[in-house]
Design a protein around this nucleic acid. Structure first.
Length: 113
DNA sequence: ATTCTGACGTGGG
DNA sequence: CCCCACGCCAGAA
């Protein structure tokens, strides 16, 4: 608890709660962990989350719905393939209908603190 | 110990 | 409206 690395754990907790076929943004996660402004760190933490089947980092995109971190999956189309596999529509690294697929972690994680 | 980078976001010109 | 710069914080060199 409250370890200096707890920041990463908080990010993982939020991402783990992302439902199938849904996506969230770094800023939303940052907000959920009360680290507004540190959205960069969120993505950084996710890079370490890759490899954890419990942490669907591919469901996390930037504020514009772009798959900015697809390059970190070991394949330029791995992230897109995963999202499309979940029923999402990704075109040109951009999540179509992103607004409808967006999932806000805030109301779903009252205990994220 | 210091310095730089990094899967973003918001603000200002 | 579009483009540039700054801010954040933690890990790695």
């Amino acid at each position: 608890m409250q370890a200096k690395t707890d920041f990463f754990e908080r990010v993982y907790t939020i991402v783990r709660e992302v439902p199938y076929g849904r996506v969230t943004t770094y800023g939303a996660i940052a907000k959920a962990i009360y680290a507004v402004g540190s959205a960069r760190m969120v993505g950084y933490a996710l890079s370490a989350a890759i490899g954890m089947p419990d942490v669907p980092a591919h469901r996390v995109v930037n504020r514009a719905g772009l798959l900015t971190g697809k390059h970190h999956f070991g394949g330029a189309r791995v992230m897109q393939d995963l999202l499309e596999s979940e029923g999402l529509v990704v075109t040109n690294n951009q999540v179509q209908n992103f607004k409808s697929c967006f999932w806000d972690p805030m109301p779903a994680n009252p205990r994220a603190i």
